[in-house]
Amino acid sequence: MKTDIRNIDDIKIFVDDFYYKVQQDELIGPIFDNAIQDWPTHLDKMYKFWNAALFGVPGFKGNPFAKHAPLPIQKNHFERWLELFQQTIDHFFSGEIAEDCKHRSELMASMFLTRLENMRGGADKVII
């Protein structure tokens, strides 16, 4: 029986598995491989990010949007990211925190995509 996400050890399970899937993915894998030079450091940052997001534990420092803004990512990339992320959570966990984690991933993807579209002008905007 699956348990809920309870602590940093559980976070490490889903972060490690998720980013393994990302690296193997034909659509988003190359983007991550080009952007991330040091995977252990990135994974450690993601452990801290999710520990802060889910449990309020201090330790994460950074600006995730600024890291994503220069990347060649669009809606289909966010959709694939979400698909892999939520499959990973569902594979290992079940419960209130797991659902909150998936919900937060949806909010982040939506917010990042909206900000990127606005920053880049979007299809319905003219930038002079």
Rank of each mutant, 00 (worst) to 15 (best):
Ala52Ile: 02
Phe49Ser: 06
Phe55Ala: 11
Ala35Phe: 08
Met1Arg: 01
Leu82Met: 12
Pro58Asp: 15
Thr114His: 10
Phe55Lys: 03
Gly59Gln: 08
Lys75Val: 08
Pro70Arg: 04
Gln37Gly: 08
Arg80Asn: 12
His103Met: 14
Ile127Phe: 08
Asn63Thr: 11
His68Ile: 07
Arg115Ile: 03
Ser94Ala: 11
Lys61Asn: 15
Glu96Val: 12
Gly121Asn: 09
Ile128Asp: 07
Ile97Ser: 01
Pro70Cys: 08
Glu26Asp: 14
Glu26Gly: 04
Asp38Pro: 07
Pro40Thr: 03
Pro58Gln: 10
Ala69Ser: 11
Leu82Glu: 12
His91Ala: 11
Gln23Leu: 13
Phe18Thr: 06
Lys45Asn: 13
Gly59Val: 04
Asp90Arg: 01
Pro40Ile: 11
Pro72His: 08
Lys12Phe: 06
Trp39Ile: 05
Gly62Ser: 09
Thr3Leu: 06
Phe14Glu: 04
Ile13Tyr: 00
Pro72Asp: 07
Asp100Gly: 04
Leu43Ala: 11
Arg80Thr: 13
Asp44Cys: 07
Asp90Val: 05
Gln24Ile: 00
Gln87Leu: 03
Phe93Ala: 05
Thr3Cys: 00
Ser105Val: 10
Phe65Ile: 14
Phe65Tyr: 15
Trp50Glu: 11
Ser110Ala: 13
Phe78Gln: 02
Asp10Ser: 01
Val57Lys: 09
Phe65Pro: 00
Leu27Cys: 06
Phe55Gln: 05
Asp90Cys: 10
Arg104Gly: 01
Asp100Glu: 13
Phe65His: 04
Lys2Met: 12
Cys101Asn: 06
Val15Arg: 08
Asn76Ala: 12
Phe78Tyr: 14
Ser105Glu: 03
Ile73Leu: 08
Arg104Met: 05
Met46Glu: 15
Cys101His: 04
Thr41Glu: 13
Met111Trp: 07
Lys45Ala: 15
Ile8Asp: 05
Glu117Ile: 10
Lys2Val: 07
Phe92Met: 02
His68Gln: 11
Gly56Asp: 10
Lys67Glu: 11
Gln86Tyr: 04
Pro30Ile: 11
Leu84Ser: 07
Gln37Trp: 05
Asn118Tyr: 12
Ile127Glu: 08
Leu84Tyr: 14
Glu106Tyr: 13
Met119Asn: 14
Lys102Tyr: 10
Asn76Val: 13
Glu83Asp: 14
Cys101Ile: 02
Gly56Tyr: 14
Glu79Arg: 05
Gly95Cys: 11
Trp81Val: 01
His77Thr: 02
Phe78Glu: 05
His68Thr: 06
His103Gly: 08
Ala69Arg: 10
Arg80Gly: 02
Asp100Ala: 14
Tyr19Arg: 01
Ala98Asn: 04
Met119Thr: 12
Trp81Thr: 01
Asn63Asp: 15
Leu107Tyr: 07
Tyr20Arg: 15
Asp38Ile: 13
Glu117Thr: 08
Lys2Gln: 15
Ser94His: 12
Leu54Pro: 00
Met46Lys: 06
Asp33Thr: 14
Phe112Gln: 09
Lys45Glu: 12
Lys67Gln: 12
Lys2Arg: 15
Leu107Pro: 00
Phe85Ile: 10
Trp81Glu: 01
Ile89Asn: 01
Ala35Leu: 04
Tyr19Lys: 03
Arg104Thr: 03
Thr3Phe: 02
Phe65Ala: 10
Trp39Thr: 05
Asn63Met: 09
Ser110Pro: 00
Thr114Ile: 02
Glu106Val: 03
